[in-house]
């Protein structure tokens, strides 16, 4: 469990939009062990998705990595060539599934066509020279679909994506993404667009398959409730920075950052029954107009002068529990409490 699979250190990334420059990730450092599930949470626009795309190196052209490393399996992914990424990493060791299953599959090709294409690419890189027939790949595609619990896979495989429901499409994506060779799965809001019951089913499927193959997961979501059930560790992000990181139990049980607390309080759940849910005033600031100091201070009821001046460092406040709140670090957590 303690062997790190992925180590991101000091990752800093800008979007260059004409004259404007937006810092989408600011000195982001974390590690993910083999077989572990790391949940990344935060409101939209806080850099979660950028992080996922940076790891698999599919950032839009306007993105520019300023500094930092992404060490995966002992190698810095940022130093690999595009060809190496294609040959060894993308779809092989690292797979990614995206938020909107409606658009994630090409609408004008059958499921089998798309799956066979991907399986063929993977096979070409894994066993060069050894050519399989289309029929073999088709069989393989059916096996994958069966593994994700799609009924009647041999028939469904020749359907078009529009004949599948959202949950089914996400199952197809999972079937394409997860195999015995996958060591890291990046799930970017993979279940956000789905119904709650379907969401639970899909999450269970992801966890089960990942456990079977020993795959680590970077699970990106804005829903802390989902993470409490499936994540080993949780990382809270805000405006491109890590605010809090630690074991699920300690982050959710005794959060050390007002922002994490606010996220938790805004969640309907057992403890909050009968109480009014909290809604955080204000909104995530646009990345090209971040306030100085702690970027959360305009929305934070505990902000003091020092929060406006200094950028809070990420400090280990408890064993394996890191937080970036100056107020908490100076005064202790008893001093602040949301209503």
């Amino acid at each position: 469990m303690s062997e790190p699979l992925l180590e991101v250190s000091q990752l800093t990334l800008d979007y260059n939009l004409g004259s404007r420059k937006m810092r989408a990730l600011d000195r982001v450092s974390f590690s993910l062990d083999k077989g572990q599930v790391l949940g990344v949470a935060g409101e939209s626009g806080c850099g979660k998705s950028t992080l996922g795309l940076a790891i698999i190196r599919l950032l839009p052209k306007v993105a520019e990595i300023r500094r930092g490393e992404i060490v995966f399996d002992g190698r810095d992914l940022l130093k690999l060539s595009e060809a190496q990424m294609d040959r060894e990493i993308r779809g092989q060791k690292i797979a990614m599934i995206f938020q909107n299953p409606q658009n994630a599959l090409n609408p004008v090709f059958k499921i089998e066509t798309q799956m066979i294409d991907i399986l063929r690419v993977q096979d070409k890189y894994q066993n060069p020279g050894n050519r399989k027939r289309r029929q073999d790949f088709r069989q393989q595609a059916i096996e994958r679909l069966k593994g994700t619990g799609i009924a009647d896979p041999a028939v469904r495989v020749s359907n078009y994506p529009f004949e599948f429901s959202g949950g089914m499409k996400q199952r197809v994506m999972i079937g394409m993404a997860l195999s015995s060779g996958t060591s890291l799965l990046l799930a970017d809001e993979a279940t956000t667009a789905l119904d709650v019951t379907i969401e639970a089913q899909i999450n269970r499927l992801i966890t089960e398959l990942a456990a079977e193959y020993g795959t680590s997961i970077l699970y990106i979501t804005h829903n802390l409730g989902v993470l409490s059930e499936m994540a080993d560790r949780i990382m809270i992000m805000y405006a491109g920075r890590i605010f809090e990181m630690g074991w699920t139990k300690s982050v959710l049980g005794s959060p050390r950052h007002p922002y994490s607390t606010a996220l938790l309080e805004s969640l309907p759940g057992r403890q909050t029954r009968g109480k009014r849910l909290l809604s955080i005033p204000g909104f995530v600031p646009p990345l090209d107009r971040l306030p100085g100091g702690c970027s959360f201070h305009p929305r934070c009821p505990f902000a003091e002068e020092v929060c406006r001046q200094e950028v809070p460092p990420l400090i280990e406040v408890d064993k394996g529990h890191w937080s970036a709140c100056l107020f908490d670090q100076k005064r202790g957590r008893q001093k602040w409490k949301w209503i």
Binding site: L58, R90, G91, Q92, A95, N106, Q114, I118, V121, A177
Partner: peptide, 29 residues
Amino acid sequence: DSDYIRTARAFAVPKRAIAYRYALKNAVI
């Protein structure tokens, strides 16, 4: 720019195959 092209990239489908096999069929409609 669409999501399904990003999916194909995430599965290492070569850029040329994406442009002339996947995207062209959609774009020609």
